[in-house]
Amino acid sequence: MIDRILIFFYKTTGFPLLDYFVGTFILAFLCVIVGDVIFLIGKKINGKYIKKMTTEMKKKEELSIIAYQRGDKAGYKALNKDATNAWGKNFFTMAAYSAGMLSPLPFALGWMHTRFSDVEFLLAYPLSLIFGETVGYTFTFIPLYILSRIIFKYIRPYILKNLK
């Protein structure tokens, strides 16, 4: 079922190469939207906790700088270390939320592998010097995902405004 829906986007123009890029762009854009929805759900559920954690981390960082400003080296060292612990927790929690945001990517790449694992794009010089003679589907998907994320960044406020 999913395969039929996704491959539909690869048959829009009738020109194979163009179809491939249109289909991959739509797939990448879908990944961005689904990832964003997952992230928003996480934020909604645990927003309070994230805020508390971030505030604690920032406070400790600020305190360490004030200690440094005052020339209190021992205080700076101790506070800096304390901020490290707060940062560790914040970093890994945010890493886990990022995981949710990016989770559609491997599924999309997994689907592309079933359809396009034999497709290879010849690269022109000097790109061939860096990436080798040919590249596969991942090489086209990732730049299109980044492009989709940039476009979505500008569209997102309008979508959220209309949803409200």
Binding site: I38, G42, I45, N46, Y49, T93, A96, Y97, A99, G100, L102, S103, P104, L105, P106, F107, L109, G110, H113, F131, G132, V135, T138, F139
Partner: peptide
């Protein structure tokens, strides 16, 4: 991946990312 041709099992990475996300919601 690009130069050595190592491949990964994408669906496993996908469900792992989702699981990590779900676990981080439960943690706090």
């Amino acid at each position: 991946m690009a130069l050595k041709g190592v491949i990964v099992y994408w669906p496993l990475i996908g469900v792992e990312l989702l699981g990590v996300f779900a676990g981080s919601l439960i943690g706090p």
